[in-house]
Nucleic acid binder design. Structure first.
Lengths: 322, 322
DNA sequence: ATGAAAGCGCTAACAA
DNA sequence: TTGTTAGCGCTTTCAT
């Protein structure tokens, strides 16, 4: 593969001039610059990133470490991060931690070693590995789940869960169950807390917690059905799939036999009949804001951490009409 | 951030020994190695990736460039690639080309510049930028869509589309429409071709082509409805969402008023009523095989290109019962 | 405006 | 087994 030296020889200039020309420095003669560019073209020259990054001590790449690539909520965040980053000249590489702290740690190390310009992270838990990022001085912004002493973009999950539950109460449901995510995951805990906030004895507490996945939803729903709830608050869209499957098996129809509201406005929620009442989170905006915070922090590393809290809104649909 | 020099000083050895110890070379005294490791730990040492990659002239990273992160088919491929790559000690960074040749080109350049060990690519079209990868000698494997003179993992889309259409014919439908993906995209063209293969005059050709997205499906379906089809073959799951929406608007019930079969067994396809007949593609296996091919090519760069064709299978469900 | 040369942090010959 | 040293390809002073 051609190096800067080859280009310099072909263009009959020094490597310094090649570097300057290709990086658009103003101090280079237009004619020379042109000669350099065509030489580079002819050789199919691609600057050696590692060498450049080593010398510059920085890269134009963000790492985005999310807990589940197969969850539309996170892919929507990815789109938001990407759009904003691209505009500012950064590329985004996506790493899937798969809700697995070990994989998260691996990817944080990769990000650190590759000296990425910044990291957007949806933390899988207490994540001791964050400490390394901090020590390395790499800018980090947490999304969806909090991370102390760090820029963050969060959603007011608790309030959203409370409102969703109040919506169920207002619709006349009296035995409202909650299918929550795994204990210890902040969004999961918050949603359960919001559910409790709303009850005030107007419904018994019927809670089950499980993994943020379809199988988790399935298990929790099977189990909770024993308590014969007349409505269900489900903590995310992957779980909702499992819950709806179980309901169908049991011959229970959403909206008629049992009210259902779930977090995340996944693309399929309007296809089912009746369509699913959801709590829509501004996923794309979360990503965009995270990228903005990262850019701001790069520009001003000493700035105190900023926490952005975005709202979620209920979209009432058929599954909660009594 | 600590460098190898700092570690060497703290451990009282040379940088060479540090490098050897940390990379697990056998030729280093266990006691020394231990001293080095604890020194590295104490300093929170993270090897400088750019420097290492520059020197080694290789990285342990694969780039996976897919055309749409929000499409479950591609995220499933991502999982397959990742699982296999991780096992072999490689990390995978995911780049979203968004069906946009310009973004694809950008990410190919990034991959090239960062000197990744290999690229898995779902090409967005003729992709002239592949030429650069080839010139750079970077191993590439194409997934889902063909790429000349290159390892490839494909699905026999044409056959699958033919079988799906035959299934519709066997079910007694006589005006079978085809909602195809964008012309020029190979999988899209193949699926339309398979549809035609099956017809033999047993149904008029009712074809519409659009983007591989929900809006594309919506447009094409609205348009095609004018030809009053009694069944529909839909080219992917994102389009299927749009198609089903339009059907619902028009008061047409899948499986009763109009038969529907779509490519991709998305998670929601069993939730709708009746559930959706689909052509299931082995997405995860596609990814895993792609990663295997990449590893094989790295081990043996001169080996002639291998093309793996995987099968897809029809899963008949309620939406095609007459 | 251009070139010469130093050096980013690491690994791999080569010596010892 | 360990250390010394050259150099990977680039950018950036410092001269000119």
């Amino acid at each position: 593969m051609a190096t800067i030296n080859d280009v310099a020889h072909l263009a009959g200039v020094s490597t310094a001039t090649v570097s300057r020309a290709l990086n658009g420095k103003s101090t280079v003669d237009p004619a020379l610059a042109e000669r350099v560019r065509s030489a580079a073209d002819e050789l199919g020259y691609q600057p050696n990133g590692p060498a450049r990054n080593l010398r510059r001590r920085e890269t134009a790449v963000f790492a985005l470490i999310i807990s589940d690539v197969e969850n539309p909520f996170f892919t929507a965040i990815a789109r938001g991060v990407e759009d904003t980053a691209q505009t500012a000249g950064y590329s985004v590489v996506l790493c899937n931690s798969d809700e697995n702290p070990e994989k998260e740690r691996r990817y944080i190390d990769v990000a650190l070693q590759e000296r990425v310009a910044g990291v957007v992270l949806s933390p899988t838990g207490a994540s001791p590995s964050i400490e390394r990022l901090r020590r390395g001085g790499t800018p980090v912004v947490a999304v969806d789940r909090p991370l102390i002493a760090c820029d963050q973009v969060l959603v007011d999950s608790r309030r959203a869960a409370r409102e969703a539950t109040e919506h169920l109460i207002a619709a006349g449901y009296t035995r409202i169950g909650c299918i929550g995510g795994p204990p210890g995951v902040r969004t999961a805990d918050d949603r359960v807390a919001g559910y409790r906030d709303a009850l005030h004895g107007r419904s018994p507490r019927l809670e089950r917690r499980a993994e943020y996945r379809t199988t988790g939803g399935r298990q929790a729903a099977r189990d909770l059905l024993a308590d014969s709830p007349d409505a269900l608050l489900v903590a995310n869209s992957s779980m909702a799939i499992g819950v709806l499957e179980v309901l169908a098996e049991a011959g229970l129809r959403p909206g008629r036999d049992v009210g259902v509201v779930a977090f995340d406005d996944a693309p399929w929620t309007t296809l089912i009949n009746p369509s699913l009442t959801v709590v829509a989170q501004p996923a794309r905006e979360i990503g965009a804001e995270a990228a903005r915070l990262l850019l701001a922090r790069i520009a001003e590393p000493a700035h105190p951490p900023v926490v952005t809290i975005l709202g979620a809104h209920l979209i009432p649909r058929g599954s909660t009409r009594h």
